[in-house]
């Protein structure tokens, strides 16, 4: 049996959102005064297909505990295959994370629409809980990985 120790750890989360679709959804959550942890910060880009896997890794290396990508999915006005592209970026980022011994659960993606205020707040609370259980990020490669 494990004992949960109250450490006061609040995971810091970086959200990549998109200017025209998920960002208005996240704005709406605020406009409706819906609460999510204040350790969640958003950076907005035109389209989730333009994110570099290296940026995601960089965030972890800088000590952020989780990265969430609000993808445009089918809503994307710019790219028909946006969902597939963003999925491929996630897969590449997962590879980079694996090499550094970063738990795959620290990266999450979900399609977020321009009025997806409630889903966004739900994702953030859930993700924050998951990351709280995982504990603070450690980017040091595990011993086994170094040995191989």
């Amino acid at each position: 049996m494990t004992t949960i120790v109250e450490t006061g750890f609040k995971p810091r989360i970086l959200v990549f959102s998109t200017n025209n679709i998920s960002d208005p959804g996240i704005d709406l959550a605020g406009s409706r005064h819906m609460h999510y942890p204040a350790q969640v910060s958003t950076m907005s880009v035109p389209c989730s297909s333009g994110l570099k896997p290296g940026w995601i890794l960089h965030a972890f290396e800088q000590g952020l505990d989780g990265v969430f990508i609000g993808s445009d999915g089918d809503e994307c006005a710019l790219l028909d295959d946006c969902g597939k592209r963003t999925g491929s970026i996630i897969a590449q980022a997962q590879e980079l994370m694996k090499a550094k011994g970063i738990e795959p659960q620290r990266l999450k993606m979900a399609a977020l629409c321009s009025v997806c205020a409630e889903p966004f707040v739900g994702y953030m609370r859930e993700f924050s809980a998951t990351l709280t259980k995982l504990g603070p990020i450690s980017t040091a490669a595990p011993a086994a990985a170094v040995a191989s």
Binding site: I26, D27, A29, G30, S31, H35, P37, A38, Q39, T42
Partner: peptide, 18 residues
């Protein structure tokens, strides 16, 4: 505002740090 003060009316310290 939308992505900070209004979303964290319950956590002034957290909102300021953010």
């Amino acid at each position: 505002r939308e992505q900070c003060s209004w979303a964290h009316t319950d956590d002034h310290e957290g909102a300021t740090e953010k």
